[in-house]
């Protein structure tokens, strides 16, 4: 079970959260100008790394706010959680 530190509420059990997938995927500012391949890249393609992953979580049974986390996909260690809009922590501090 993961212990996830919500930036608003503090450490809570994983069962309170929903997962939101890869973070920091910016919606294209001018979708009309995109080719189908560029649109597919935005919509479907994912980095899916084996290692550190920047990802979104939603505190569904808590403050009901979204935030980001930096979590390792092999050890499941959570290095940092941070609010939406804040810069992603560096990979190697």
């Amino acid at each position: 079970m993961l212990l996830i530190s919500c930036p608003f509420c503090g450490p809570r059990d994983e069962s309170e959260f929903s997962y939101g997938g890869e973070a920091h995927i910016a919606r294209p500012s001018d979708p009309d100008a995109l080719s189908d391949a560029e649109w597919a890249d935005y919509l479907f393609m994912r980095t899916n790394p084996k290692g550190w992953h920047y990802e979104r979580w939603y505190h569904a049974h808590g403050c009901r706010r979204w935030f980001n986390a930096m979590r390792h996909t092999v050890t499941h260690e959570i290095r940092a959680t941070y609010k939406m809009g804040e810069p992603a922590p560096a990979l190697e501090p």
């Binding site: 393609m45 994912r46 899916n48």
Partner: peptide, 18 residues
């Protein structure tokens, strides 16, 4: 279980989450 990792080695991405 490692498709995205292999695709990254070959230089492209897949629409996959593991």
């Amino acid at each position: 279980g490692h498709s995205s990792v292999m695709a990254a080695l070959a230089g492209f991405r897949l629409p996959i989450e593991s």
